[in-house]
Write a protein that binds this DNA or RNA. Structure first.
Lengths: 111, 111
DNA sequence: CTAATATGCAACCTGTTGGTTGCGTTTTTG
DNA sequence: CAAAAACGCAACCAACAGGTTGCATATTAG
Protein backbone atom coordinates (compact mmCIF):
# COMPACT_ATOMS: atom_id res chain seq x y z
CA UNK A 1 0.00 0.00 0.00
CA UNK A 2 2.18 2.77 -1.29
CA UNK A 3 1.43 5.62 1.05
CA UNK A 4 2.57 8.68 -0.87
CA UNK A 5 2.74 7.70 -4.54
CA UNK A 6 5.22 10.43 -5.45
CA UNK A 7 7.65 10.35 -2.56
CA UNK A 8 11.32 11.16 -2.90
CA UNK A 9 10.90 11.57 -6.61
CA UNK A 10 11.29 15.31 -6.16
CA UNK A 11 14.87 14.85 -5.06
CA UNK A 12 15.80 13.60 -8.49
CA UNK A 13 15.09 16.95 -10.08
CA UNK A 14 18.64 18.25 -9.48
CA UNK A 15 20.08 15.19 -11.19
CA UNK A 16 17.86 15.66 -14.23
CA UNK A 17 18.68 19.34 -14.28
CA UNK A 18 22.39 18.51 -14.21
CA UNK A 19 21.99 16.14 -17.15
CA UNK A 20 19.72 18.52 -19.01
CA UNK A 21 22.54 20.25 -20.82
CA UNK A 22 24.28 18.96 -23.96
CA UNK A 23 27.72 20.06 -22.83
CA UNK A 24 27.32 18.36 -19.48
CA UNK A 25 26.03 15.22 -21.14
CA UNK A 26 29.13 15.20 -23.28
CA UNK A 27 31.34 15.54 -20.23
CA UNK A 28 29.58 12.63 -18.56
CA UNK A 29 29.99 10.55 -21.70
CA UNK A 30 33.68 11.42 -21.85
CA UNK A 31 34.15 10.39 -18.25
CA UNK A 32 32.23 7.18 -18.87
CA UNK A 33 34.70 6.30 -21.56
CA UNK A 34 37.82 7.88 -20.23
CA UNK A 35 37.91 7.07 -16.53
CA UNK A 36 39.43 10.01 -14.68
CA UNK A 37 40.25 13.05 -16.76
CA UNK A 38 41.70 16.47 -16.05
CA UNK A 39 39.96 19.72 -16.81
CA UNK A 40 42.42 20.43 -19.58
CA UNK A 41 41.71 17.06 -21.16
CA UNK A 42 37.98 17.55 -20.89
CA UNK A 43 38.28 20.98 -22.45
CA UNK A 44 40.38 19.74 -25.36
CA UNK A 45 37.70 18.93 -27.91
CA UNK A 46 35.11 21.50 -26.87
CA UNK A 47 34.74 24.94 -28.34
CA UNK A 48 34.23 26.50 -24.93
CA UNK A 49 36.64 27.81 -22.35
CA UNK A 50 38.34 25.87 -19.62
CA UNK A 51 36.55 27.97 -17.05
CA UNK A 52 33.21 27.14 -18.58
CA UNK A 53 34.04 23.45 -18.43
CA UNK A 54 34.98 23.84 -14.78
CA UNK A 55 31.59 25.35 -14.04
CA UNK A 56 29.80 22.48 -15.72
CA UNK A 57 31.88 19.95 -13.82
CA UNK A 58 30.96 21.62 -10.57
CA UNK A 59 27.29 21.53 -11.47
CA UNK A 60 27.55 17.80 -12.07
CA UNK A 61 29.46 17.40 -8.82
CA UNK A 62 26.75 19.39 -7.07
CA UNK A 63 24.22 16.83 -8.24
CA UNK A 64 26.50 14.16 -6.82
CA UNK A 65 27.32 12.65 -10.17
CA UNK A 66 31.05 13.37 -10.11
CA UNK A 67 33.84 14.00 -7.69
CA UNK A 68 37.29 15.43 -8.09
CA UNK A 69 40.74 14.27 -7.14
CA UNK A 70 43.69 16.59 -6.83
CA UNK A 71 46.90 15.17 -8.18
CA UNK A 72 49.85 17.43 -8.49
CA UNK A 73 49.01 20.50 -10.44
CA UNK A 74 45.98 18.97 -12.04
CA UNK A 75 42.48 18.19 -10.88
CA UNK A 76 41.00 14.95 -12.12
CA UNK A 77 37.31 14.24 -12.33
CA UNK A 78 35.57 10.90 -12.33
CA UNK A 79 32.11 9.43 -12.01
CA UNK A 80 30.80 8.91 -8.49
CA UNK A 81 29.83 5.23 -8.47
CA UNK A 82 27.44 5.22 -5.52
CA UNK A 83 25.56 8.30 -6.59
CA UNK A 84 25.31 7.14 -10.14
CA UNK A 85 23.82 3.90 -8.99
CA UNK A 86 21.39 5.85 -6.86
CA UNK A 87 20.42 8.07 -9.78
CA UNK A 88 19.92 5.01 -11.90
CA UNK A 89 17.43 3.64 -9.39
CA UNK A 90 15.54 6.92 -9.43
CA UNK A 91 15.34 6.73 -13.18
CA UNK A 92 14.03 3.19 -12.94
CA UNK A 93 11.43 4.29 -10.42
CA UNK A 94 10.17 6.97 -12.75
CA UNK A 95 10.19 4.62 -15.68
CA UNK A 96 8.13 2.16 -13.67
CA UNK A 97 5.63 4.88 -12.83
CA UNK A 98 5.49 5.78 -16.47
CA UNK A 99 4.95 2.18 -17.43
CA UNK A 100 1.98 2.03 -15.11
CA UNK A 101 0.54 5.16 -16.63
CA UNK A 102 1.25 3.75 -20.08
CA UNK A 103 -0.62 0.56 -19.37
CA UNK A 104 -3.58 2.44 -17.98
CA UNK A 105 -3.62 4.68 -21.04
CA UNK A 106 -3.38 1.76 -23.44
CA UNK A 107 -6.05 -0.18 -21.60
CA UNK A 108 -8.27 2.86 -21.82
CA UNK A 109 -7.68 3.35 -25.53
CA UNK A 110 -8.09 -0.29 -26.44
CA UNK A 111 -11.45 -0.62 -24.70
CA UNK B 1 29.35 -3.05 -33.21
CA UNK B 2 28.14 0.28 -31.89
CA UNK B 3 29.70 2.74 -34.28
CA UNK B 4 29.77 6.01 -32.38
CA UNK B 5 29.48 5.17 -28.69
CA UNK B 6 27.59 8.30 -27.61
CA UNK B 7 25.39 8.95 -30.60
CA UNK B 8 21.88 10.22 -30.16
CA UNK B 9 22.46 10.53 -26.47
CA UNK B 10 22.72 14.26 -26.93
CA UNK B 11 19.14 14.38 -28.07
CA UNK B 12 17.98 13.34 -24.65
CA UNK B 13 19.25 16.54 -23.07
CA UNK B 14 15.97 18.40 -23.72
CA UNK B 15 14.03 15.65 -21.98
CA UNK B 16 16.29 15.78 -18.96
CA UNK B 17 16.10 19.55 -18.96
CA UNK B 18 12.31 19.36 -19.00
CA UNK B 19 12.34 16.99 -16.03
CA UNK B 20 14.95 18.99 -14.21
CA UNK B 21 12.47 21.18 -12.40
CA UNK B 22 10.60 20.22 -9.21
CA UNK B 23 7.36 21.82 -10.33
CA UNK B 24 7.46 20.05 -13.67
CA UNK B 25 8.28 16.77 -11.98
CA UNK B 26 5.22 17.24 -9.81
CA UNK B 27 3.06 17.88 -12.84
CA UNK B 28 4.32 14.71 -14.49
CA UNK B 29 3.65 12.76 -11.33
CA UNK B 30 0.14 14.18 -11.13
CA UNK B 31 -0.54 13.18 -14.72
CA UNK B 32 0.88 9.73 -14.08
CA UNK B 33 -1.65 9.27 -11.33
CA UNK B 34 -4.53 11.29 -12.65
CA UNK B 35 -4.77 10.45 -16.32
CA UNK B 36 -5.85 13.58 -18.19
CA UNK B 37 -6.15 16.75 -16.13
CA UNK B 38 -7.10 20.33 -16.89
CA UNK B 39 -4.85 23.29 -16.22
CA UNK B 40 -7.13 24.41 -13.42
CA UNK B 41 -6.91 21.00 -11.78
CA UNK B 42 -3.16 20.90 -12.12
CA UNK B 43 -2.92 24.38 -10.63
CA UNK B 44 -5.16 23.54 -7.67
CA UNK B 45 -2.61 22.38 -5.12
CA UNK B 46 0.33 24.49 -6.24
CA UNK B 47 1.27 27.87 -4.85
CA UNK B 48 1.95 29.26 -8.28
CA UNK B 49 -0.26 30.88 -10.88
CA UNK B 50 -2.29 29.15 -13.56
CA UNK B 51 -0.24 30.92 -16.20
CA UNK B 52 2.97 29.61 -14.68
CA UNK B 53 1.59 26.08 -14.75
CA UNK B 54 0.65 26.55 -18.39
CA UNK B 55 4.23 27.51 -19.20
CA UNK B 56 5.58 24.43 -17.47
CA UNK B 57 3.13 22.21 -19.31
CA UNK B 58 4.24 23.68 -22.59
CA UNK B 59 7.87 23.06 -21.75
CA UNK B 60 7.04 19.41 -21.07
CA UNK B 61 5.07 19.27 -24.29
CA UNK B 62 8.02 20.80 -26.11
CA UNK B 63 10.13 17.89 -24.92
CA UNK B 64 7.47 15.58 -26.29
CA UNK B 65 6.44 14.26 -22.90
CA UNK B 66 2.87 15.54 -22.92
CA UNK B 67 0.18 16.56 -25.31
CA UNK B 68 -3.02 18.49 -24.89
CA UNK B 69 -6.65 17.87 -25.75
CA UNK B 70 -9.21 20.61 -26.03
CA UNK B 71 -12.57 19.73 -24.61
CA UNK B 72 -15.15 22.44 -24.26
CA UNK B 73 -13.80 25.37 -22.35
CA UNK B 74 -11.00 23.40 -20.83
CA UNK B 75 -7.69 22.07 -22.05
CA UNK B 76 -6.70 18.66 -20.80
CA UNK B 77 -3.15 17.40 -20.62
CA UNK B 78 -1.93 13.83 -20.60
CA UNK B 79 1.26 11.85 -20.97
CA UNK B 80 2.45 11.06 -24.47
CA UNK B 81 2.87 7.27 -24.43
CA UNK B 82 5.21 6.87 -27.38
CA UNK B 83 7.56 9.64 -26.37
CA UNK B 84 7.64 8.51 -22.81
CA UNK B 85 8.60 5.06 -23.90
CA UNK B 86 11.30 6.56 -26.06
CA UNK B 87 12.63 8.64 -23.20
CA UNK B 88 12.64 5.56 -21.02
CA UNK B 89 14.87 3.77 -23.50
CA UNK B 90 17.28 6.71 -23.51
CA UNK B 91 17.46 6.54 -19.76
CA UNK B 92 18.18 2.83 -19.94
CA UNK B 93 20.92 3.47 -22.48
CA UNK B 94 22.61 5.94 -20.18
CA UNK B 95 22.21 3.68 -17.23
CA UNK B 96 23.84 0.89 -19.21
CA UNK B 97 26.75 3.14 -20.08
CA UNK B 98 27.05 4.07 -16.45
CA UNK B 99 26.99 0.45 -15.46
CA UNK B 100 29.90 -0.22 -17.75
CA UNK B 101 31.83 2.66 -16.25
CA UNK B 102 30.89 1.43 -12.82
CA UNK B 103 32.24 -2.01 -13.47
CA UNK B 104 35.47 -0.64 -14.84
CA UNK B 105 35.84 1.62 -11.81
CA UNK B 106 35.11 -1.19 -9.38
CA UNK B 107 37.45 -3.55 -11.17
CA UNK B 108 40.14 -0.90 -10.95
CA UNK B 109 39.59 -0.23 -7.26
CA UNK B 110 39.39 -3.88 -6.25
CA UNK B 111 42.68 -4.75 -7.92
C1' DC C 1 65.87 29.61 -11.18
C1' DT C 2 62.67 30.21 -15.13
C1' DA C 3 59.32 29.09 -18.35
C1' DA C 4 55.42 26.50 -19.29
C1' DT C 5 51.25 23.94 -17.42
C1' DA C 6 47.07 23.49 -15.11
C1' DT C 7 44.08 25.86 -12.34
C1' DG C 8 41.55 29.11 -9.24
C1' DC C 9 39.01 33.40 -8.54
C1' DA C 10 36.22 37.22 -9.60
C1' DA C 11 33.97 40.56 -12.34
C1' DC C 12 31.06 41.10 -16.06
C1' DC C 13 27.66 40.28 -19.84
C1' DT C 14 23.67 38.43 -22.29
C1' DG C 15 19.90 35.27 -22.99
C1' DT C 16 16.77 32.27 -20.69
C1' DT C 17 13.70 30.93 -16.79
C1' DG C 18 10.23 30.92 -13.58
C1' DG C 19 6.69 33.89 -12.17
C1' DT C 20 3.54 37.75 -12.00
C1' DT C 21 -0.11 41.05 -13.29
C1' DG C 22 -3.71 42.81 -16.32
C1' DC C 23 -7.06 42.20 -19.63
C1' DG C 24 -9.60 39.95 -23.46
C1' DT C 25 -12.08 35.61 -25.20
C1' DT C 26 -14.67 31.36 -25.22
C1' DT C 27 -17.87 28.12 -22.83
C1' DT C 28 -20.98 26.91 -19.32
C1' DT C 29 -24.34 27.48 -15.96
C1' DG C 30 -28.62 29.66 -13.80
C1' DC D 1 -28.94 36.84 -21.42
C1' DA D 2 -25.62 37.63 -17.49
C1' DA D 3 -22.40 35.82 -14.29
C1' DA D 4 -18.89 32.50 -13.60
C1' DA D 5 -15.30 29.32 -15.13
C1' DA D 6 -11.30 28.17 -17.75
C1' DC D 7 -8.17 29.94 -20.72
C1' DG D 8 -4.99 32.67 -24.00
C1' DC D 9 -1.89 36.47 -24.80
C1' DA D 10 1.51 39.91 -23.86
C1' DA D 11 4.30 42.86 -21.18
C1' DC D 12 7.28 42.98 -17.55
C1' DC D 13 10.73 41.40 -13.85
C1' DA D 14 14.24 39.53 -10.93
C1' DA D 15 17.26 35.76 -10.67
C1' DC D 16 20.04 32.43 -12.78
C1' DA D 17 22.82 30.07 -16.42
C1' DG D 18 26.28 29.68 -19.66
C1' DG D 19 30.24 32.00 -21.21
C1' DT D 20 34.07 35.20 -21.43
C1' DT D 21 38.15 37.94 -20.15
C1' DG D 22 41.88 39.22 -17.03
C1' DC D 23 44.96 38.19 -13.60
C1' DA D 24 46.98 35.57 -9.61
C1' DT D 25 48.77 31.02 -7.89
C1' DA D 26 50.66 26.43 -7.58
C1' DT D 27 53.35 22.56 -9.95
C1' DT D 28 56.47 20.72 -13.03
C1' DA D 29 59.85 20.59 -16.66
C1' DG D 30 64.43 22.27 -18.33
Amino acid sequence: MRKSGTPALQKTAPVFAALGDPTRLRLVAALCAGGALSIAQLTAGTAITRQAVTKHLEVLAGAGLLHDIHRGRERLWELQPSRIDEARRSLDAIAAQWDQALQRLKAFVET
